[in-house]
Nucleic acid binder design. Structure first.
Ligand SMILES: [Mn+2]
Ligand SMILES: [Mn+2]
Ligand SMILES: [Mn+2]
Ligand SMILES: [Mn+2]
Lengths: 172, 172
DNA sequence: CACAGTATGTAGCCTAGGCTACATTTTCAA
DNA sequence: TTGAAAATGTAGCCTAGGCTACATACTGTG
């Protein structure tokens, strides 16, 4: 240390000016471009957070749909095992699915998707496949593609998905 | 209530067998492929969760590095504004950065990155750029590319990033 | 037909990451 | 030089998503 990075006089160690932002003198509200220059970035982070918050719901409905499609039923224990979480965790998340109108379930009777749930599941399944296909198409090794797609899919917007589709069609 | 949800003859509505899993008779641990068929999927979900948990740290160090690079300092308020969160939220996350050895900060003195923090920031910055470039290269509209990259980047593994790099070089 | 064993559900705890309200410190302009 | 405004920090609350430990319900045998 002893870099003495002083703004004006602040002694040793870290530390810098902290000079207030220009503070546009109150008498001159004119001029300037107004916007703090980065209203965009904040909204991008915000949207990324929103996308992430829906990720768990998406993985659940996709998995439930798969389980029902292959074995005819989706039981909490199976869901938990496939997701790699404890069964109480799965049960609590299933409760949230119900709360949000994506699934229905009665105690000891297994989990089923509502129409909204099925619809979401189908979209998610399609998107997942396209993401994997795109990764493979640009040369990502199979296992990495499968692994990364599980997280990537939830951040692929409709516009991006459409572009992926066009790219895949173009490249056969 | 009064649904009489019985195990075998469950009448109408939702409801299904819930037949216990085969329960491999204890005397015959032989045969079979052993593995429950999907140990992979659980690990994929687990890794995606892990990747996500590091996302916030990554965005913070990248942003702090940018702020210092352009304005010479990274103040909690600026960080909060750029991320679109309240300043207490930013301060609490900065505390976690310190805890994890990625940043140092003294009250009212701004935030600085440790060597580990700078290193991570550089990796994250590079990865972010490559992800955006790849999206653009496959035909994703600019704004969607910028938006989606903010979430996607955190789920791109080294193997996938390398493949992206090769693809970009190949396609110029 | 009982009962052991599995699946399911509940309670209670933890951390990360959000927020608002309020307190304190620093800076800048009068 | 001083005091108002801005930045920073603290306290306390909330939800999502994890977990373990324990309680309850089912079901297929013996
Ligand atoms: Mn997923
Ligand atoms: Mn998926
Ligand atoms: Mn990001
Ligand atoms: Mn980024």
């Amino acid at each position: 240390m002893s870099e003495s990075p002083r703004g004006r006089s602040i002694g040793r160690s870290i530390g810098r000016s902290l000079g207030r932002t220009p503070k546009h003198t109150p008498e001159s509200p004119a001029g300037r471009a107004e916007l703090p220059a980065e209203p965009t970035q904040a909204s991008r982070f915000g949207k990324a957070r929103t996308a992430q918050s829906g990720a768990l719901m998406e993985d659940y409905v996709e998995l439930i749909s798969d389980l029902i499609g292959t074995g005819g039923e989706a039981r909490p224990t199976d869901i938990a095992r496939r997701l790699g979480v404890s069964h109480p965790t799965a049960i609590k998340t299933i409760a949230r699915l119900k709360r949000e109108g994506l699934a229905v379930a009665k105690p000891y009777r297994g989990v089923f998707l509502t129409e909204a749930g099925e619809f979401l599941a189908e979209r998610v399944r399609t998107r997942h496949r396209i993401v994997v296909d795109l990764l493979l198409a640009v040369g990502v090794p199979a296992e990495a593609a499968e692994q990364d797609a599980e997280g990537l899919e939830h951040h692929v917007s409709d516009a991006t998905l459409a572009a992926f589709g066009r790219f895949l069609r173009r490249a056969q």
